[in-house]
Design a protein around this nucleic acid. Structure first.
Length: 481
RNA sequence: GGCGGCAUCGCCAAGUGGUAAGGCAACGGUCUGCAAAACCGUUAUUCUCCGGUUCAAAUCCGGAUGCCGCCUCCA
């Protein structure tokens, strides 16, 4: 099975061939730590986590680097606004970042370097660029000269002429070309600064990624990822300055994920429609977000809406119930799984889909099919099928795991959600149990009117009753708060 | 103004030359006191429109319309 990856540079799917057999060097632009993460960060995190997991599933030895940009204008602004040292701003939001990413079951990278730990290497890079004639100094600022690098614009597919015609670039008299970007910024009084041969100051954006990626992965390396918005200017500039300095190719495959809209509108701070990960997971299981994102191809934009999230929530729970039912059949028994060819076939299709530029939407459909198969066998209530169920369930869980899904224990998850839901509506478990017992009495007496009333009353509170052969069970039917 | 992307069932969504996956919703059935859950079945001769290439097009080319992104910090 050959993995194909869409490469932003060529605009095509390409066969993936790592530089070194069996190994993948993978870099993703992390966050600038000046605020809590929103669901846009979650999408990027989940997309690249899925890619990371899949590369490992395919047997690659992956070195995965995701950086923190812990020095920039926004951090300085935040530090002034909140009157705390800029270092503390970074610390605070790095902590917040890990809380969110861990909650979303996003695997930690091999290395998570911070910009401020690599200032020395950044200064070296600026020096090299100056020496090679790709940079120039004006009033203590150092700029990269885009005209000095022939390949400028190749990644974002635009020519310098096109961009000049765009005319939305602010004209800065200091720059030789309006598109030139800062490599080093002189600091004002009271701002963080580092000593450098070309003057005290701090690194420009882009520099940290050039330095940290090549430091931990070598030059060139295999995959560089990030949000679509980073194609220009961030990755274009990163590429230009790195290749200008080294004279060789920087990255083989560029991968970019699409954006998250909210109710068909771009999510942005100015519109005020950002949704924080922390707020989302107050209401939903974190895997709901993962399932939602993975049901659309990573390069397409995705529209967040309450309805879509409710759908994803229902689907996720259905998958957990499938697993629970499968485990139920094996309870108290020693089961030797027996090969179930249909599961193998679905597994192959799953891998084929993932090999085709990480088509998670298609891959998920095979998980649904597997879930259906398992439910069917459970419904049959045939003891002889149990080894097949065990086998299918193992495949089901392993495929889910490569997408980072179904990590929770179904029983524990259900119990947690029950407690959560009941506390939100101000009831407790004993109330539900007493009410259910009341209904059981009514049913015994064939008082179906009362029985149905009780059921309707509980449903209004988001509590769904199921009369199974084993008795009455209840579930939470998620109600949007 | 420049560059790029998208348009597939009521909704979400896969599908880049070989005759329309999947999910949600809806409807019918099995099961049930009735439901629910689960399963089975039904639901796009058709992929925004117009033209072209081809034996064959949702998929390629040209045009039109509509939506979106980037060009400024942004995942």
């Amino acid at each position: 099975m050959a993995l194909k990856v869409y490469n932003t540079v060529s605009g095509k799917k390409e066969d993936f061939k790592p530089l070194e057999e069996g190994k993948v060097k993978f870099y993703v632009c992390g966050v600038t730590v000046y605020d809590h993460c929103h669901i846009g960060h979650a999408r990027s995190g989940i997309v690249f986590d899925t890619i990371y997991r899949y590369l490992k599933t395919k047997g690659y030895d992956v070195t995965f680097v995701k950086n923190f940009t812990d020095i920039d204008d926004k951090i300085i602004r935040k530090s002034l606004a909140e009157n705390i040292p800029w270092q503390e701003v970074g610390e605070k939001y790095i902590k917040s970042y890990y809380e969110d990413m861990d909650a979303l079951n996003i695997l930690r990278p091999t290395h998570a370097p911070r910009a401020t730990e690599h200032i020395g290497e950044m200064i070296e890079l600026v020096n090299t660029l100056l020496k090679k004639g790709h940079g120039y100094i004006v009033d203590g600022d150092v700029y990269f000269s885009v005209d000095s690098f022939r390949g400028y614009g190749q990644l974002s597919k635009r020519s310098l002429d096109d961009m000049m015609a765009g005319a939305r670039v602010e004209v800065d008299e200091k720059k030789k070309n309006p598109l030139d970007f800062a490599l080093w910024k002189s600091s004002k009084e009271g701002e963080p600064s580092w000593d450098a041969p070309f003057g005290n100051g701090r690194p420009g954006w882009h520099l940290e990624c050039s330095v940290m990626s090549t430091k931990y992965l070598g030059n060139p390396f295999d995959i560089h990822g990030g949000g679509k918005d980073l194609v220009f200017p961030h990755h274009e500039n990163e590429r230009a300055q790195t290749e200008a300095a080294t004279g060789i190719k920087f990255v083989n495959y560029w991968i970019h994920n699409g954006f998250v809209n909210i109710d068909r509108e771009k999510m942005s701070k100015s519109i005020g429609n950002t949704l924080l990960i922390k707020d989302f997971i107050k209401d939903y299981h974190p895997e709901v977000l993962r399932l939602f994102f993975l049901s659309t191809h990573y390069r397409s934009p995705i529209d967040y809406s309450e309805k879509s999230i409710e759908d994803a929530n229902n689907v996720l729970h259905r998958l957990y119930y499938t697993q629970e039912r499968a485990l139920e059949t094996q309870k108290g028994k020693t089961v030797n799984p027996a090969r179930y060819p249909e599961a193998d076939e679905l597994q192959n299709k799953f891998y084929e889909a993932m090999d085709d530029d990480f088509n998670t939407a298609l891959a998920l459909s095979y998980i649904f099919e597997l879930s259906k198969n398992i439910n069917k066998m459970v419904d049959d209530k045939d003891e002889g099928l149990i080894p097949l169920i065990a086998y299918a369930n193992a495949v089901f869980l392993s495929l889910s795991d490569t997408l980072g899904l179904l990590k929770d224990d179904p029983g524990a998850l259900e119990a947690r959600e029950k407690v959560h839901h009941l506390s939100r509506i101000g009831l407790d478990v004993s109330f539900v149990e007493n009410t259910i017992n009341e209904r059981i009495e009514a049913r015994k007496n064939k008082d179906y009117r009362k029985s149905d009333e009780i059921r309707a009353m509980l449903l209004e509170k988001g509590i769904l009753l199921l009369d199974t052969p084993k008795g009455t069970e209840w579930r939470i039917k998620h109600i949007v708060p």
